[in-house]
Amino acid sequence: MSEKTYPYTAWVLLPSFKPKLETFVCHASYGHEEVQTGKWYLPDAIYETKAKAIAAGREKIKTQLADLEKRREKLNKKIASLDKAERE
């Protein structure tokens, strides 16, 4: 987003990944922005449109799935090591 005048509305993703329209009331220190309820968001967690918020959420899910797959591979190697040790 370019220069902002407060208040303005934008979209954020809740921890449940549900997009929510928020009204931002001020810019705070360390780059955070405050909404009417007193919550703070970093600029990279604020989206101009609902579609952009949803797309960002999908990208986060892809990253999380990739991380889970890496963990699964490591666990499978550990299981294989235990199975091999059990057969010896």
Rank of each mutant, 00 (worst) to 15 (best):
M1N: 05
S2D: 06
S2P: 03
E3F: 07
E3W: 09
E3L: 15
K4Q: 13
K4I: 09
K4L: 15
T5N: 14
T5V: 12
Y6F: 15
P7A: 09
P7Q: 08
Y8M: 03
Y8H: 15
Y8N: 06
T9Y: 00
T9F: 07
W11F: 15
W11Y: 15
W11N: 06
V12G: 08
V12C: 10
L13T: 11
L13E: 09
L14K: 13
S16W: 07
F17I: 02
F17A: 11
F17T: 06
K18F: 02
K18W: 03
P19T: 10
P19N: 09
P19F: 03
K20W: 05
L21I: 10
T23R: 11
T23N: 03
T23K: 14
T23L: 05
V25Y: 02
C26T: 13
C26Y: 09
H27P: 00
A28C: 14
A28K: 14
A28H: 11
A28G: 07
S29M: 02
S29P: 02
Y30L: 07
G31P: 09
G31S: 06
G31K: 05
H32N: 11
E33W: 10
E33Q: 15
E34D: 06
Q36D: 12
Q36A: 13
T37V: 04
T37P: 02
G38F: 06
K39P: 00
W40S: 12
W40D: 01
P43M: 04
D44Q: 12
D44G: 03
D44A: 03
A45D: 08
A45C: 06
A45L: 04
A45I: 00
T49S: 14
K50F: 07
A51L: 03
A51F: 04
K52P: 00
A53D: 03
I54G: 01
I54Q: 01
A56Y: 06
G57C: 02
E59I: 04
K60L: 04
K60N: 02
K60M: 05
Q64V: 08
Q64I: 06
Q64R: 08
Q64K: 12
L65N: 01
A66M: 01
A66G: 01
L68P: 00
E69N: 01
K70L: 08
R71I: 02
R71V: 02
R71N: 10
R72H: 09
K74L: 07
L75P: 00
N76I: 06
N76D: 09
N76W: 02
N76E: 14
K78V: 06
I79K: 11
I79A: 10
I79D: 04
A80S: 07
A80V: 04
A80E: 14
S81R: 11
S81W: 00
L82K: 09
L82R: 09
L82I: 07
D83K: 14
D83R: 15
K84E: 13
A85D: 12
A85R: 11
A85M: 12
A85V: 00
A85N: 08
R87I: 07
R87S: 12
R87C: 00
E88Q: 12
